[in-house]
Design a binder for these strands. Sequence first.
DNA 1: CAAATGACAAAAATTAATATTTGTCATTTG
DNA 2: CAAATGACAAATATTAATTTTTGTCATTTG
Lengths: 194, 194
Amino acid sequence: MAEPLTREQILDTTEQVLRRFGLDKTSVVDVARALGVSHGTLYRHFASKAALKEAVAERWLHEVSTPLGKIAGEEGSAFDKVRSWIERLVHIKQSKAKEDPELFAMYNALAEESVEVITAHIHELIAQLTKIVEEGMKSGEFQKGNAHEQAAAIFYATARFHHPALAKEWASSHIQEEFKQVWSLITSGLVKKS
Amino acid sequence: MAEPLTREQILDTTEQVLRRFGLDKTSVVDVARALGVSHGTLYRHFASKAALKEAVAERWLHEVSTPLGKIAGEEGSAFDKVRSWIERLVHIKQSKAKEDPELFAMYNALAEESVEVITAHIHELIAQLTKIVEEGMKSGEFQKGNAHEQAAAIFYATARFHHPALAKEWASSHIQEEFKQVWSLITSGLVKKS
DNA sequence: CAAATGACAAAAATTAATATTTGTCATTTG
DNA sequence: CAAATGACAAATATTAATTTTTGTCATTTG
């Protein structure tokens, strides 16, 4: 307690308080109380409540992008990797949503308050996918083309299964099947090969 | 005014009042006043305020499904038709959202209150698409398979461009390009043809 | 007598007074 | 003297009293 307050300590405690009280009911005073400091102190570490929430959102999104980045960095066929990557993304989002829907909704609301944080997160994810797609184009597994555009297309074509705004629909008993069908459409294409 | 009140008259006026006052500020009394009747009268035509709103939502969604149904019924190549159908769907949604975002949000909120109405609407749309896909499979334009599943996959893979929950993202300057890339991915597929 | 009314109770929403929260900064503490 | 405090004003949110709204139904109207 005599130690100086760190940014990570504040973020840990902020998350705890947010989980207990919820996004709307959490005040800076609540966070300060949980840390045993005055609320003025928090303003020496974060410029505003918005900046504090932004930092929490950023950290939460890194929990998604970090394991995915590992998959993108592995060895192996690009086809297997792109499939693992997307399936992992879908699984992370859907399992968080299923385990604790309220908490999932709260973190998403938190993230939505910080457009820039979300934008950076999406760019990071598409950059990871781009890397895999580039490999697949080089190895001859995938059709040649603009890897970044192709990666974005894969990401957006699967949005139904990982975009938080569509989380309500993940409760459907067909969602797993639908993902498989979309994935098959993306990989094989609609049009008959001549 | 001596004429008996019709269901369509009530729905027309309800829409007018909703557009003026908004979803939250519109009461059954407001609608009755605009019609020049007592609010008790409306309950002889609709079981509840929810039922009245449901009927408005249903009518609004038919404005989407009706023109699309015409495309599905036309003559011509299945490939052209599936493309026209999806492009039309995307265009209807995005232009409504762009022209009057508040009104678009209101009608969507209205529709979201009636899960069954939305479910029926989506089923109708996918049934239309299924018809086109079936033709394409018969004519040899498309790969053979389960037409309904394939239609659903096309619908869901393009959700980013027509699902109202994602309307915020349609303002992006890249949205048109992204649609083209997703469409090309869906038709040609990611994997290199041997 | 079919269609509409309007008075009514219960539920829901609004309002305005009250209290909390955010953000600042001069002062205090170790 | 760097780090933290706490008193303060302005902005925001909560609460509880008041009003409106929903839905019903016995009565009225054409």
